[in-house]
Amino acid sequence: MKVIPAVDIQGGKAVRLVEGDPARETVYFEDPVGAALYWEEQGASLLHVVDLDAALGRGDNRAQIRRIAAALAMGFEVGGGVRNLREAEAILALGAERVVIGTVLVKDPDEAARMLETLGPERVVPSLDGRGLEAAVAGWQEGQAGDVLELARTADAMGFRTLIYTDVRRDGTLEGLDLEVVARVREAWPHELIAGGGVATDADLEGLERLGVEGAIVGKALYEGAVDGRRWWRG
């Protein structure tokens, strides 16, 4: 199973938030390039980068993303505020391997379909963020945005082939995954599934493996040493 380190950027720094609250941040690296290089040196093969400022509509960190692209040998994906084809193409032009979309899938599915048709399923990945199975969008500031399972089925019908599911209730809390919820998403989504939100120990990752989940995005548990990514990256 792929363990994918998360580098969330807010105000130009690599941070982790608790339950997506921008006021509850912990700064782990003053320079997100340092965070990216650290995980590459540890053996990761893919990085999950989130531009929190773009997601919240208060600027962006594209200069930092460009610097990450210049420094890394491994691939990375970028999410946060990517809500139309033009923005997706701009992120890819910075050097990202693929873009992650969320709000646009819920609020403007026609634009999401245009992004998929133009870029292909290898370069654009939908992310469903939910409080349990209730979808949240716009940097998790807007809830009641639909049912995660129905949205997953919609994404499948549209032609997407990788899905990210994040449990907002547990993200950044080290409380462990809600595997019952992940199991329901697994049942609804027949392709590659990547899960996150609350990974606390290797037991969470082992639980995902038992469910047949192909990957996990891990943040705080890696930064604080609760999970040793090298165990997973060495196979």
Score class of each variant (00 low, 15 high):
122 E>Y: 08
181 V>P: 00
176 G>R: 06
171 D>Q: 03
166 T>V: 10
129 D>G: 12
162 T>H: 12
169 R>L: 14
154 T>K: 15
156 D>G: 00
158 M>T: 15
153 R>C: 13
121 P>M: 08
125 V>Y: 06
132 G>R: 02
113 A>V: 04
182 V>H: 05
171 D>K: 04
101 I>T: 05
102 G>N: 12
120 G>H: 04
170 R>G: 07
175 E>C: 12
159 G>C: 13
103 T>L: 13
157 A>Y: 15
153 R>V: 13
161 R>L: 08
149 L>W: 09
137 V>N: 06
126 P>T: 00
145 A>S: 05
104 V>K: 02
143 G>L: 12
167 D>V: 08
119 L>H: 02
176 G>V: 04
156 D>H: 12
185 V>F: 13
117 E>A: 14
133 L>S: 06
173 T>N: 13
175 E>A: 15
130 G>T: 07
161 R>N: 11
133 L>A: 11
123 R>P: 01
159 G>K: 15
106 V>T: 09
141 Q>T: 12
121 P>V: 10
115 M>P: 03
168 V>W: 03
161 R>F: 08
137 V>P: 02
125 V>E: 10
110 D>V: 00
152 A>P: 08
128 L>G: 03
171 D>N: 06
175 E>D: 14
189 W>P: 03
112 A>T: 00
132 G>C: 02
162 T>V: 14
151 L>G: 02
183 A>R: 12
139 G>I: 05
157 A>R: 15
106 V>F: 13
167 D>E: 11
140 W>E: 02
158 M>P: 12
166 T>M: 06
160 F>S: 10
118 T>R: 14
158 M>C: 15
104 V>S: 05
137 V>S: 10
135 A>I: 10
123 R>D: 03
112 A>V: 01
122 E>C: 03
145 A>V: 00
143 G>C: 12
173 T>M: 15
126 P>N: 00
169 R>A: 15
135 A>C: 13
128 L>T: 00
132 G>Y: 01
128 L>R: 03
133 L>T: 08
178 D>E: 11
169 R>G: 14
126 P>F: 01
110 D>L: 00
140 W>I: 03
123 R>A: 06
114 R>N: 08
115 M>A: 08
185 V>N: 09
122 E>L: 11
164 I>L: 13
159 G>I: 13
179 L>V: 03
150 E>W: 15
160 F>R: 11
165 Y>D: 02
173 T>I: 13
99 V>S: 07
178 D>R: 09
169 R>Q: 15
110 D>W: 00
171 D>I: 05
148 V>F: 01
155 A>Q: 11
120 G>T: 04
184 R>T: 03
132 G>M: 00
161 R>S: 09
159 G>S: 14
101 I>P: 01
151 L>R: 07
116 L>D: 07
188 A>K: 10
141 Q>H: 09
171 D>F: 07
